[in-house]
């Protein structure tokens, strides 16, 4: 059962790109545009090992934010949202682990199916780490205007407790 606000779920489900921000070793934030994939109240992103620096940052500091800001990438929806949460890397086998989110990915980006069939052409692109984000706090701007205060939603304690356990 997802605790995420329904309009934010709609944004996540439509988003072709969201901005994943992680914290570098020097404390600076660094932002990577990636396709967000939602399953329940978890947000998933995948990263090719070719572009794996973000994974090094995440391994050191799992605190992240995912922002959904671009109406063009959100299917014309005017709302905006920022999700803060904790990331966990699923990378036991980069060849296949990420394929658990492939069905959701294909819904958003059908072209990836054709690319996957040509895996021989891009073998390292399809060696991927899966980033599972557990949301802790959500900021939502219904009309997308950030010169007005956002609605703030906090993860239920039970969710946090389960995770802590």
């Amino acid at each position: 059962m997802s605790w995420l606000p329904e309009p934010v779920e709609r944004l996540l489900d439509a988003a072709l790109v969201g901005e994943l921000t992680v914290v570098r070793a020097d404390g600076r934030p660094i932002t990577y545009p990636l396709i967000p994939l939602r399953d329940g109240d978890r947000v998933y992103m995948t990263s090719s090992i070719l572009f794996s620096r973000k994974l090094e940052h995440l391994r050191r500091d799992p605190r992240v934010s995912v922002s959904l800001t671009d109406p063009v990438a959100l299917g014309g929806q005017p709302g905006r949202a920022t999700i803060q949460g904790d990331a966990q890397l699923i990378e036991d086998d980069p060849h296949v682990d990420w394929e658990q989110v492939l069905p959701i990915w294909l819904e958003k980006e059908p072209a990836i199916g054709a690319f996957l069939k040509q895996r021989v052409a891009l073998p390292l692109f399809f060696e991927r780490s899966l980033i599972e984000i557990t949301p802790r706090r959500v900021l939502y701007w219904a009309d997308g205007r950030t010169d007005t205060p956002p609605q703030v939603f906090i993860a239920p304690v039970s969710t946090a407790g389960e995770e802590a356990a």
């Binding site: 934030p29 932002t31 992240v64 934010s65 922002s67 800001t69 920022t82 803060q84 997308g144 950030t146």
Partner: peptide
């Protein structure tokens, strides 16, 4: 709190 925060401006 150590979490990054991103907002469109």
């Amino acid at each position: 709190d150590g979490y990054p925060l991103s907002v469109a401006i």
